Computed example of a mutant assay.
Amino acid sequence: MIDPVILQQGSDWRAQAEVFDEIFFVFLALGTLVGTIVVAYTLWNVYKYRDDGNRSDEDFDAPVVGELPTGQGGPKAKKLFLSFGLSAIVVISLVVYAYGLLLYVEQGPDDGTEGDIEIMVEGYQYGWAYEYPNGHTERGELIVPADQRIDLNITSRDVWHNFGSSDLRIKSDAIPGDHSETWFAVSSEDVEAQGGEATYRVECFELCGPGHSQMKSQVTVIPQDEWEEWYASTGNSSESASVQPAGAGLTAHSGVSA
C-alpha cells in the first residue's frame, strides 16, 4: 500500500487535482501500451495462422471441448498461463497503486500540524454561503490562500445539493441536517500561472430545483500574504479574528449563519 507520506512535497501536500491527473495519465499510458501489444500480437497471429490453402487438417491442433490447460500441455498452454500471469500482475499492481492514492484523496493529508483552514459551506436554493473560522460569511465566492490545505464542512439549508468543482477535482454532497467533508489545495505556482489570482468554478451537481443550472459560485485563490491581509479585515474584532500564519492553527466555526 502506498503510504500517504510519500505524497508530500517538502512541507506541502499534493492537491487532489494533481493526484487524479497522475492516475489518469498512468492508466492512459499503460492502457495504450497494453492495448498496442495485444492488438499487434492478435494481428500477427491472424497473419501467421491464416488459411492459405496449403495447410492440412492433420497439422491443425484444435482445442478439445472440456479440455483444461495445465501449463504442461505444450506451447499453447504455456502461452495461455503466461498471458494470465502477466495480466494478473498488471491489474493487481494498478489496483494497489490507485487504491493507495484514492485513500489519500479520501482521507486527506495529515502531517500532525494545526494549520489547516476549515470553512463551513452551506448550500441553499440557489447559491452557496461560506463561513470562515472567525465567523465572517461570504456568499458566491470562497476566498482562500495558496499553498494551504482547505477543509470544507458541507451541508444544506433546504434540499439536497452537491458541492463540486471540476477543475479542483472535488465533489461532495450537501444534505440537510448532515455534514460531509472534503478538502483541496492550490499551489502558488498555479496562482502565478493565472496572473496572481486563480479562479475555479463551483457548481451544484445534484438536481435541486428549477434554478439548479444557475447555482454557481467561485473559488478564488490568492497568495498567502494577500489572503492574510484580507482575512484580518473581516469578522468581528471582539472575536479575536486576526489571522495567524500557516501552521498556527485555525479552528472551525460551529456553522453557517442563515
Score class of each variant (00 low, 15 high):
1 M>D: 11
8 Q>E: 13
13 W>A: 05
15 A>L: 05
16 Q>H: 06
18 E>V: 08
28 L>D: 11
32 T>R: 11
33 L>D: 04
41 Y>K: 05
42 T>V: 00
47 Y>N: 06
51 D>I: 01
52 D>V: 07
55 R>D: 12
60 F>N: 07
69 P>R: 01
70 T>P: 02
73 G>Q: 13
74 G>Q: 04
74 G>L: 02
75 P>L: 04
75 P>C: 00
76 K>L: 14
79 K>S: 10
86 L>E: 01
92 I>G: 00
96 V>K: 14
98 A>E: 06
98 A>R: 09
102 L>M: 15
106 E>H: 14
108 G>K: 02
109 P>V: 00
114 E>C: 04
121 V>L: 07
137 T>L: 09
138 E>I: 02
140 G>E: 12
142 L>E: 03
149 R>W: 08
151 D>R: 09
151 D>Q: 08
153 N>L: 15
159 V>A: 13
160 W>G: 08
163 F>D: 04
163 F>L: 04
163 F>G: 00
172 S>T: 09
172 S>V: 10
174 A>W: 00
177 G>M: 04
179 H>N: 13
193 A>G: 10
197 E>D: 12
199 T>K: 15
210 P>T: 12
212 H>A: 09
214 Q>G: 12
217 S>P: 12
229 E>M: 12
234 T>W: 03
235 G>F: 07
238 S>M: 10
257 S>V: 15
258 A>V: 14
